[in-house]
Design a protein around this nucleic acid. Structure first.
Lengths: 163, 163
DNA sequence: GGGTTGCTTGCAAATCAATTGCAGTTGGGG
DNA sequence: CCCCAACTGCAATTGATTTGCAAGCAACCC
C-alpha cells in the first residue's frame, strides 16, 4: 500500500470548513492555537483521504513540526471530536477531519491504497437488533471496504500501481 | 480492555474441527507439523474468542513456545487461510480459526473486552452496488461492533468490569 | 532405521508505531 | 506587558512485530 497523497480535488465537505472555524474550537476549550496545530489542521483540510501521522509529518517538511507533537495533537483533536480515526487494518492509525454531518466509511484499494469515501452505512435497524439481541447498549460500528480500484485492474498504464 | 479468556463453552463450530484436519492442511502444503504448531492450533481451537499472539503465548506457558515462533506461525496460517485476523482498533492483532463456512463479525464490550460472535453481515447486494459504483472488483469488508455488555451496564457485581 | 534436506525454532537484536519525561517556549487572558 | 498553564522539541521508553542466524527436527528417500 502506498501512494498516500491524493490531494487532487479537495472534497467540498472539507473546503467549506474554514481553518478559523477549527481553530476557534480549540480556543473555546482553552486549548492554544499554535502554528503547529494550524499547520496540521491545514494539511488535513487539504487532503481528501485519511492521513497517518507520518504522512502529516512528511507534508509538514519545512515547517519542521516534531512527530511527537503530531501524535499529541491528534490525541487532543480526537478527544475534542475535531478529527476521526480510521483503521485500515495495517496497524497504522489514520486521521481525517470530522465534519459534523453524517459519518461515512471508506473503500480502499488493496493495490495502490487509494481511498474513496462511501456514504452507505450498516443498516441502523439491523444494528439495533443486534444490540438488543445481546443486551448491549451504546452500540457503534467500524466498517471499511477493500477491493481493487479501476486503475489497478488493467496492467497497461506504467506509473501507478504497487507491489 | 482485558479479560481476554472466555473459553467457558467451546463453540460448536470449533469443536467440530478436529486437530488432525488442521494439521493435514499444513502437511498438504509441504509445511511441517511441529509440536509448537499443534499446540498453537489447539489453543485456538479451545477458545471461543479471537486471541492475541501474547495471549496464545501465555496459554502455552510450560510448553515453552517462543513468541517469535507464534508470530511466524500465525503469518503462515494466515497465508494458508487457516486463521483469520481481526482488529478491534487497539493496535493488537487477534486471530481465530477460519471455519470454512460463513464469515462472521464481532460485538466487543468496550468495558471488559468480552467478545460475542455476530452472524449478521453487511448486505451483499449493497456491497456489490458500492463496488460497481466505484468500479472496484474483489470487494470485501471489515466490520466490528462495539458497545457495553449487560454485565458492565449495572455497577452492582464486584469482580468484573475494567477501566 | 539412518541419512539428507529444507522448513522450523529459539534467542537476540532490530524495526516501527506510539508514548512519555523533561526542560525550554509561547499563546493569550488579565 | 506579565504570568502561567498549555505547548513543543528532543531523547529515551514502551509494546507489538519482524528478522538474522545457528541449531533442531519433521518428512521423505533408500
Amino acid at each position: 500500500m502506498n501512494q498516500p497523497c491524493h490531494q487532487h480535488a479537495i472534497p467540498r465537505r472539507l473546503v467549506q470548513q474554514p481553518l478559523s472555524e477549527l481553530t476557534d474550537r480549540l480556543r473555546a476549550r482553552s486549548r492554544k492555537v499554535t502554528g503547529q496545530r494550524e499547520a496540521i489542521l491545514d494539511v488535513l483540510r487539504r487532503h481528501a483521504n485519511p492521513l497517518t501521522n507520518r504522512e502529516i509529518h512528511a507534508a509538514l517538511r519545512g515547517s519542521g513540526c516534531d512527530l511527537a507533537t503530531i501524535y499529541r495533537t491528534m490525541h487532543t483533536l480526537l478527544g475534542m471530536g475535531v478529527v476521526r480515526r480510521c483503521d485500515f487494518g495495517d496497524g497504522v492509525a489514520r486521521f481525517e477531519l470530522a465534519t459534523g454531518d453524517a459519518h461515512h466509511h471508506h473503500l480502499v484499494c488493496r493495490a495502490c491504497g487509494m481511498v474513496v469515501e462511501v456514504d452507505d452505512c450498516f443498516p441502523a435497524a439491523l444494528e439495533e437488533a443486534i444490540a438488543r439481541r445481546h443486551g448491549f447498549v451504546g452500540i457503534a460500528h467500524r466498517l471499511e471496504f477493500f477491493g481493487v480500484c479501476p486503475r489497478c485492474q488493467d496492467p497497461e498504464p506504467g506509473p501507478p500501481k504497487a507491489p
